[in-house]
Design a protein around this nucleic acid. Structure first.
Length: 583
DNA sequence: GGCACCGGCCAC
DNA sequence: AAACGTGGCCGGTGCC
């Protein structure tokens, strides 16, 4: 690469000059260097902007560039494309420190992930992506250097280089996205970056005392159970033990298997599905299952959760990975607010601060509605359009009984089928879940697909597509690729199940992402902030007096987001206004 | 001490 | 691989 002109901006006059250049540029590479990763506890040192043949490095410790009207306009205007790698990070910094909402984002990280179509073991770091698309090695050693003091020429060079790289990288990635017909879904993803950045900055409020109180209750149960369980497990070796209680580690599956074996209880593993069937026969097994529950509650949902509370905001600011799953779903970590136990004891601790409310909105049966729309199965569409209880309607269709005569067991079986079959549930799995024989399960599945022939056909085609084309698409055009060894029957079977599931799960992700993007502007005037997003659910925090208005907007925008993709069945959104994360 | 992996289990 | 999909977090275990 030829040497590009590089300017260090550290005076108001040089900033003015540089800004004139950006105002005219349709595409700008952007990067920042910061003193840390937490926007609330670190500062932006450098803002790098690259246009063809010119890199500009702005030293924000020397000149208050984030206040510069032209620069703000350049960054927040959707008309000028800003190319960044992992834009969420820079957007959070610019939003928090400058109140700047960066629009017109092209994110090279998300582009790379889309192109990879969920293939595992592909790195999407800037160095790897540059290498892959430009054949260029990038030295990232300066990234973790100290950006708070006197800067070396190496640091400045590195800083400029990252922004400069964005321009050729965008060219390559964009061409590839068009090739693959994924420019539209790329736009969908790029529009989500600002809303997700804002969601992370907003964070979720948690009531510390409430959480600790709950943890203490569990701790007590844990202590009692652990003593009882140790005693029960020791009984098998009483005659061997000369030194009192053997110090068995209850959290070690290997030691548990050994201890149970000494008592004459032989198990392959100690997962709950393996233990459940024999829990009635052996009190010690029942005790173990009880212990497991509280152990999980204590370790994953105990006091350690509070370590994630920001000392600055007093709230939880998780990390959302925008393309976290191969089908396009988001994932969440540190902490994972998508896996908080769905029980009142825990959810009630996620409480809106005084004078504020949570508005909780979720799509009802979104995946089944996608399946119905996609398969155009007449019976399933009709059941969903009718607004009847879906699982009763399914049981009625399958078994030929009147809908008001469907028994509890029949409805439960239908529910398992509705949710399970689109993931590839087989007779064995169904039998285990509803406690019937394999033959009965086979019969139920036959009846289900007899009632929903269109669904059967669609699922068959989806599985075939995965095996033959090794790729399928969600409703937005997002590609999901499948890699497997065709000689391995188990892998083929797993891929068939994945092939059935991925387009549906991924389309659901398309829809919720459209909802996040659509909600951003309408919620702003209400000072309502999205604080969490759990696959088919969006949680907003808002001042009490604007809760009702927020509710209306959420219902409207979420339905409109779904209608962008799904038209033949109604999408329904359940919305509740609440003090805590409870409906 | 850090890392990778596993068994196990929480969410949707 | 539970013959039901997608994730992340935990403690145990073994390795370097």
């Amino acid at each position: 690469m030829t040497r590009t002109k590089c300017t260090l901006v550290d005076t108001p006059a040089s900033l003015d000059e540089a800004c004139r250049e950006f105002v005219a540029a349709p595409v700008i590479g952007v990067d920042t260097e910061t003193t840390g990763f937490d926007p609330y506890r670190s500062r932006i040192r450098l803002l790098q902007l690259a246009v063809p043949d010119h890199n500009v490095v702005i030293d924000l410790f020397k000149v208050p560039a984030l206040d510069h009207p032209e620069l703000r306009q350049v960054l927040s205007s959707a008309n000028r494309i800003k190319v960044l790698h992992n834009a969420k990070f820079d957007l959070k910094m610019l939003l928090h420190h400058g109140g700047i909402e960066v629009r017109g984002v092209f994110d090279t990280l998300l582009a790379s992930k889309l192109i990879a179509a969920g293939a595992p073991d592909i790195s999407h770091g800037l160095a790897a992506v540059s290498e892959r698309y430009l054949g260029e090695e990038v030295d990232k050693t300066a990234q973790s250097s100290d950006w708070s003091g006197q800067l070396t020429s190496e640091q400045l060079e590195y800083a400029a280089k990252d922004a400069e790289l964005m321009l050729p990288l965008k060219r390559e990635l964009e061409a590839k996205l068009y090739d693959l017909q994924m420019h539209e879904v790329a736009g969908l993803e790029f529009e989500c970056v600002l809303p997700i950045a804002a969601m992370e900055l907003a964070g979720m409020a948690i009531d510390r005392d409430c959480w600790l109180k709950q943890a203490q209750v569990v701790q007590q149960a844990h202590d009692i159970l652990s003593v009882e369980l140790k005693k029960a497990l020791a009984e098998g070796i009483e005659q061997l033990s000369l030194f009192g209680d053997p110090d068995i580690n209850l959290d070690s599956p290997a030691q548990i298997i050994e201890a149970l074996g000494r008592m004459g209880i032989n198990v392959e593993g100690t997962r709950s599905w393996q233990l459940q069937p024999i829990a009635r026969d052996f009190p010690v097994v029942h005790k173990l299952l009880e212990y497991r529950t509280v152990q999980k509650a204590l370790s994953s949902y105990g006091p350690s959760m509070l370590n994630h509370i920001s000392p600055v905001t007093g709230r939880l600011h998780p990390d959302f990975r925008q393309i976290g799953a191969s089908g396009g779903r988001m994932s969440c970590s540190d902490p994972n607010l998508q896996q908080i136990p769905n029980t009142p004891e825990y959810r009630t601790c996620f409480r809106a601060p005084a004078g504020r409310k949570l508005v909780i909105a979720d799509y009802s049966q979104i995946e089944l509605r996608i399946l119905a729309d996609w398969s155009q199965d007449a019976a399933l569409v009709k059941a969903l359009v009718s607004g009847e209880d879906l699982h009763c309607a399914t049981a009625s269709q399958m078994l030929g009984v009147r809908i008001d005569e469907v028994s509890k067991e029949q409805r439960a079986a239908a529910k398992q089928l509705n949710y399970g079959l689109m993931y590839g549930l087989g007779p064995q799995g169904l039998a285990a879940r509803i406690e019937c024989s394999i033959e009965e399960a086979e019969d139920l599945i036959r009846k289900y697909f007899g009632a929903y022939k269109g669904v059967a056909e669609w699922l068959r085609e989806a599985a075939d597509r995965a095996i033959q084309d090794r790729v399928s698409r969600t409703r937005s055009g997002r590609m999901v690729s499948f890699t497997f060894d065709p000689a391995d029957r188990a892998q083929v079977a797993a891929m068939e199940r994945f092939g059935k599931n991925a387009p549906i799960q991924g389309s659901s992700a398309d829809i919720i992402k459209r909802a996040l993007a659509r909600l951003y502007e309408p919620l702003k005037p209400l000072s309502a902030r999205v604080v969490n997003c759990v696959h088919d659910e969006i949680v907003v925090e808002v001042v009490e007096e604007n809760a009702e208005a927020s509710k209306q907007i959420m219902e409207r925008e979420m339905i409109l987001a779904a209608r962008e993709f799904i038209r033949s069945v109604p999408m329904t959104v359940d919305v509740a206004i609440s003090d805590a994360w409870l409906k």
